[in-house]
Amino acid sequence: MTRIILSTGNIVSGGPSIIRKPGTYRSNLEFTNSLRSNFLAAQQDYAAALQNGNGETNGSGRPATDVWTAKEDSALYIPRIDWASAGLQEERAQYEITVKLFFLPTAPPEKRSEYINEALRLVTKELRLETVDLLITSFPGVSFEGDCEWEADKINATMGNEEEEVNTWSALEALHEQGKVSRLGIAEFGSDKLQRFIGKVKVRPAVDQINIKNCCNVPPPLALLAKDENIELLTHGDCTDILPSGTLRELLGQGLQGAGVLADGEDNAKGLRGDLKPEWVVKYTAFVKDRGVIENKGYFAGAELVEEA
């Protein structure tokens, strides 16, 4: 069994991955494109750094995997991370740090505490800070979908697994109580779901992130609830299932768009083998408050590779 940590690095000045295509309202393209471009960049940079010293390639023109990835604390970092260049330019107080953690349907809910810790460890290490201002949680199977927001709100009421969500929340509440996270938020909760949720939790979410399409009408029950409970309704454009296993396999596979880390089918191909299970994704944003500038934005993702016996 191998733990895999994927990362994008800072994507704000990393080229077109961050620019959405007109007309798309929710997608994981920013995440997958920036992963892909970070893999490619790492392959080029580390191969160049070696100056052909270790000229081994895996036959497709890519440098060998161990050139541009790294094993650290039993995890495989794809690509390897240069922690020396981590950190932000200004003092902590200048920033609003927002983290959004996506729990994926492919991972067991009982391990979410671990995922939370791992994700936060990586983000705080990357940004060199102790605390985050807002941690938003996206639960699998919960989305705000429909032709219009009214309809979305109704459909939403039956989505997700409330027991698991409340259980997970207690781990997040602990972080809040320890002062590591100032505010907690959830994503894509409609009025019914949100109403039930706040009845069951100790620390109420301060933020509910919803996706809006063309019609800018927040369903009145949700708007009312948010107002009464002092919950900020923020917008976002992420899809809930941000890293399906097929997508991950493609990202790491031998295909033209792949990183060449995983072996594809054939027996003689190099690379890791086994069952690949995406577990979580975390997005982090460091926003300079009084200048309106995004200084750092990126993603980490965790996956588990269960090697074939």
């Binding site: 704000v12 961050i18 620019i19 959405r20 295509k21 007109p22 920013e30 609003e96 927002t98 807002l134 933020v207 919803i210 809006i212 800018c216 927040v218 900020e232 309704l233 923020l234 917008t235 976002h236 454009g237 944003t285 926003f287 309106g292 995004i294 934005k297």
Partner: peptide, 15 residues
């Protein structure tokens, strides 16, 4: 415009 929208996508902004 898509560039500005992408900026807005990356910051916390209420509905």
């Amino acid at each position: 415009i898509p560039i500005v929208e992408s900026y807005l996508d990356s910051v916390n902004v209420d509905v």
